[in-house]
Design a protein around this nucleic acid. Sequence first.
DNA 1: GCTAAATGTTGAT
DNA 2: TCAACCTTTAGCT
Length: 265
Amino acid sequence: MPEGHTIHRLAREHTKLLLGRPVRVSSPQGRFAAGAALVDGRVVTRVEPYGKHLWYRFDGGELLHVHLGLYGAFAGGVLPAPEPRGALRLRITTDEQWLDLRGPTHCDLVTPAERKAVLARLGPDPLRPTADPDLAWQRLARSKTPIGQLLMNQEVLAGVGNVYRAEVLYRAALSPFRAGRDLERERWDALWLDLVMLMRGGVRLGRIVTTAREDRERRSGTPTREDSHYVYRRDGLPCRRCGTEVRTQVMAGRNLFWCPVCQPA
DNA sequence: GCTAAATGTTGAT
DNA sequence: TCAACCTTTAGCT
């Protein structure tokens, strides 16, 4: 379930769990066996998130790069660890805890240069305190590409995925089909601030909630999980604010959701 | 029990 | 544009 908020939350958890401790590292599945052997017994000195990427630094200078992709996920708990089964790419254990990684797109040892190359291609990450929204604006402001596509481009913005794309555009009352260069600077600044707030909330809660309380309660009395979004995966259902059917269509290779009335072209 | 789809990216065609 | 990665879950039967 990984957009940027998931990655930043994992970085916090893993920092608390691993930092300054020697770890046992293995790859029961075998695909990361050689890399695991190289860092087995090392001390973790840093866990760093950027966008949807995670890096783990070890005291021998090694760097582990993890990208969860669409299905990658961590699980963990207090020892003893469960018997490894299925495709378990990575297991890290401390004296007390175990951590399992399954299904990632990337789980590899990389050089500092390779890490730099990845970072160089990423746009500003709304979850990083020093992120500069102007870098994204430079790209947006001269692009004919629809804003719904630009928001998904990690070279424009790092960490935004399909849920935040749909939801932040709804909250801004912006059509996903509007060209980036037709976006006013003030509206971009407001969009960025909203992303920062929403994604920080995602880190805190461990899930994405974009609906204002009054919108959650209007239709259902008690808030439930399915009230967490305005439009994401709500195609065919009435818009929470205007009642119009929420629409969907593929944009940037993923299902986009929007309200044609609240987000007029 | 089976199938399709899912909060993502890459590399081949 | 599409298959691959590889796991979980929702929605069927």
